[in-house]
Amino acid sequence: MNTTSAKWLVLANDFIRDDTFVIRTERHGFAFIPGQHVTLGLEGAGINREYSIYSGCNDDYLEFIVKIHPGSDSATALGALKPGAAVALAGPYGAFHLPPDFNTSTPVWFFAAGVGIAPFRSIIRSTPDIDYHIVHGVREAADAYGRHFYDPTRHLTCCSRLSDGDFHGRVTVWLQQNIIPCNALVFICGSANMVADTYECLRTQGLHSDQLLTEVFF
């Protein structure tokens, strides 16, 4: 039932960092392609925002990972919801997902900044057999949300503030020292600046623009 009018109850809402929480809602058979997003808001509030689906398509609930920024009203309100409260949800939207004719032998590289990991978790959770690698840009290792979920040999954190991750520095610095396979399909998700800079590095490495898919969060 994909609609704007259904009532979706919150099943769980847990802060995993001071400013980041994972909210779980009913699913009602909501169909989506992993990587897509919805609009989410408080029921009756008149306001909504885009959030990528964090759960997999085989889960019987929907999950979202949300970061609260300074002045972040909708996110703050969502974070305060208790189980049993209702949210307004519409969608799914977007084409930031594996292509329909995707060949599972193609290496897939995911570049995420912060909660930009959300669509990638959904893709990996739904299609665990893909040959993936995640490069996750965060401030410090503790921000590498749900790190335990990924195969450690396929997951790498680039920490910009502390040196407690796999690499100390931004994703773009890591990219200056590491080469991505030339046949990879690459997904980039985060702020507009992170996406633009990562894109530029990958183009410089010789990847073709047709191999690069992007999703901007803000």
Partner: peptide
Amino acid sequence: DTETLNRLHKGYLPEQAYKNLEW
């Protein structure tokens, strides 16, 4: 109507339009 808004992927409900316009 909700059906058209859904088909167009507008992502809001008719009552939200009222609320926003009032503001």
